[in-house]
Design a protein around this nucleic acid. Structure first.
Length: 564
RNA sequence: CGGGGCGUAGCGUAGCCUGGUAGCGCGCUUGGUUCGGGACCAAGAGGUCGGAGGUUCAAAUCCUCUCGCCCCGACCA
């Protein structure tokens, strides 16, 4: 492709609405233009990259025996009502057709795929099946952001596995695990595989493929030993705290106006780790009291797992007053009767702590869990950097990440409600065991941009870059330069190098700046002086290293470097 | 949905407080000179100042409503 015939609208300055580096650079490099919040036009370069990424995904999916489908993105409401998601999921775009029938745009395709499975799969002999598609998904996100990071319309590879039993699901899951690893490896991304929140699915679990980047929206806890988990479910041990010796029973002391842990820390000159934080929640109109160490915070995800439901809410100040006989700020567990008390494990075995006295402007000291109140202990807190890894004991780090993919053991969630069953070898009807697996294609592009840029622009890795190389003719008015560049261009195309030829009559500076910007990994520079010596230059964008090669060897040298 | 910010030419912005009908840089067009890191000279084109209503002799500027975009939070199958 010649630049003079391509549409690559580069910008010197980033539009003001862009904040994240990937967003700014994809706009500046002429990849994308915004249509509305969370909606982007993919121009030539973006489309070219996206197709390369999709092809990698396709190849790796095919390699595990997955079969590519293409279902409609426009779905009738019936199946969604059947699965219960029509009313439960709030990001679905819903509307009516001319006959007043409810329709929606697919957020994923569990329902549609399960529907095909229940209609067409009848025998264990047909299993296992893995079906996938690479398709636009639509979600009415409350807050789209950061360019291609969180979109309302995006391209997703979604796949679904159907197995006879859990052992079969394990195999399908493992296949996806390795396919996903291959995909992100081939895209040359820096990523971590993290254990993720499994929801209320009992024994099922999931893994997220996470790219460390500042633009990310999630956090994972990682350990040198290889452990990695989403922060909302990461398990860890708090570093031990030295307790004061036990000193009699709970003893009230006045704390006028001291309502928060920081205030109490200031007031008592004691460490927050010596305090017990009391949070009231309400589940099915019954109170639940949550206890945490003063410097810890509650993971509602973990609480949901313990409670077995995600239908709960923080208590109102009035409800807390009712239960404790004191206002928020002086709440504590001592003396509470007939209420479920859940304590985080970091409180187990602690003694001589400080907590609210259930009397306004008063706290208790010398409080010992287990002696002065008797809670259930569970893992309830959000892990923190510096916590100790449960596997190796080393301190955990917390890093910011972008979610690229998620593999999930669904179990019988959809097959049960929608009645997807086959006969096993004994002629007995069994419900299919499913998995579902997703990859955000735009997110691969934006993660790659986040991970491969500098002040001058993008340098995508070869497999996903829109072009493998750009030929920069320093001066198109110089006949020798022009002819040498043309020859290299012709030869590169003959040798199947995906190359962009910057044949514009621009000054060299402009062309170098653009070449640096647009994310092409190699630049072949053809300039007057070098051409006179029979030489050209191969410039590796990521390292900004150049080397001279003989004109006639340029393309073969480039190919060698590309294949290396 | 709550909080904050911003809408002026393709991009970046000044002007708004203190009303007098729009300016700068880049980009774009034409001509010339230049040609290895975003050139220079000259001449041009391009704006319903997001939209509607109001106040006023007069509104980019003041008031009301509205639409859109961004950021933080809530939410996130």
């Amino acid at each position: 492709m010649r630049w003079t015939q391509a549409f690559i609208p580069t910008l010197r300055e980033a539009p003001a609405e862009a904040d994240a580096p990937s967003h700014q650079l994809l706009l500046r490099a002429g990849y994308i233009r915004q249509v509305a919040a969370g909606l982007y036009a993919h121009l030539f370069l973006a489309r070219k990259s996206m197709l390369k990424i999709s092809q990698i995904v396709r190849e790796e999916m095919n390699r595990i025996g997955a079969q590519e489908f293409q279902l409609p993105a426009l779905n009738p409401a019936e199946l969604w009502k059947e699965s219960g998601r029509w009313d439960k999921v709030d990001v679905i775009f819903k509307f009516k057709d001319r006959n007043q029938h409810d329709l929606c745009l697919g957020i994923t395709h569990e329902e549609e795929m399960t529907n095909i499975a229940r209609g067409e799969l009848h025998s264990y002999k047909q299993l296992p099946q893995i079906w996938y598609q690479i398709q636009e998904k639509f979600r009415d996100e409350p807050r789209p952001k950061s360019g291609l990071l969180r979109l309302r319309q995006f391209l997703m590879k979604d796949s679904y596995s159907f197995d006879l039993d859990e052992a079969g699901l394990d195999v399908s899951y493992q296949k996806h695990y390795s396919a996903y690893s291959n995909i992100f490896d081939r895209c040359k991304l820096n990523y971590r595989i993290a254990e993720a929140y499994s929801g209320m699915m009992g024994g099922s679990f999931s893994h997220e493929f996470m790219a460390p980047t500042e633009a990310g929206e999630d956090f994972i806890a990682v350990c040198d030993c290889g452990y990695a988990a989403n922060l909302e479910r990461a398990q860890s041990q708090a570093p031990p705290v030295e307790d004061l010796p036990e000193a009699g029973g709970p003893e009230p002391f006045p704390t006028p106006g001291q309502k928060t842990i920081p205030q109490l820390v200031e007031f008592t000159s004691e460490s927050p780790a010596r305090m017990i934080k009391t949070l009231d929640y309400v589940m099915e109109s019954r109170p639940v009291v949550i206890l945490l160490r003063g410097d810890h915070s509650l993971s509602e995800t973990k609480l949901a797992t313990v409670l077995g439901t995600n239908v709960f809410r923080p208590a109102t100040p009035e409800e807390a007053l009712d239960l404790h006989g004191a206002h928020v700020g002086s709440l504590g567990p001592v003396g509470l009767k007939g209420v479920r008390i859940l304590a985080d494990r970091a409180l187990e075995g602690r003694k001589n702590m400080i907590t609210g006295a259930n009397q306004d402007d008063t706290h208790l000291r010398h409080v010992t869990p287990g002696r002065d109140f008797d809670p259930e202990y569970h893992d309830l807190r959000v892990a923190e950097a510096g916590d100790l890894c449960l596997h190796c004991g080393k301190p955990l780090r917390v890093i910011k990440v972008m979610e690229l993919g998620h593999i999930f053991k669904l179990g019988r969630r959809y097959s049960e409600t929608m009645g997807a069953r086959v006969l096993d070898e004994n002629g007995k009807e069994v419900t299919l065991v499913m998995g579902s697996y997703g990859i955000g294609i735009e997110r691969i592009l934006s993660a790659a941009a986040e991970q491969n840029h500098d002040a001058d622009g993008l340098f995508f890795p070869r497999p996903i870059a829109p072009f493998e190389a750009i030929i920069t003719a320093a001066n198109m008015d110089d006949a020798a330069v022009r002819e040498a560049a043309e020859r290299i261009y012709t030869e590169a195309r003959e040798k199947s190098v995906d190359v962009l030829f910057d044949d514009r009559k621009e000054r060299p500076g402009v062309k170098f700046k653009d070449a640096d910007l647009i994310g092409v990994p190699y630049r072949i520079t053809v300039g007057k002086k070098k051409v006179e010596q029979g030489m050209a230059e191969i410039f590796r964008r990521s390292a900004k290293q150049a080397r001279d090669v003989k004109l006639q060897d340029t393309v073969s040298a480039l190919k060698e470097e590309l294949d290396a």
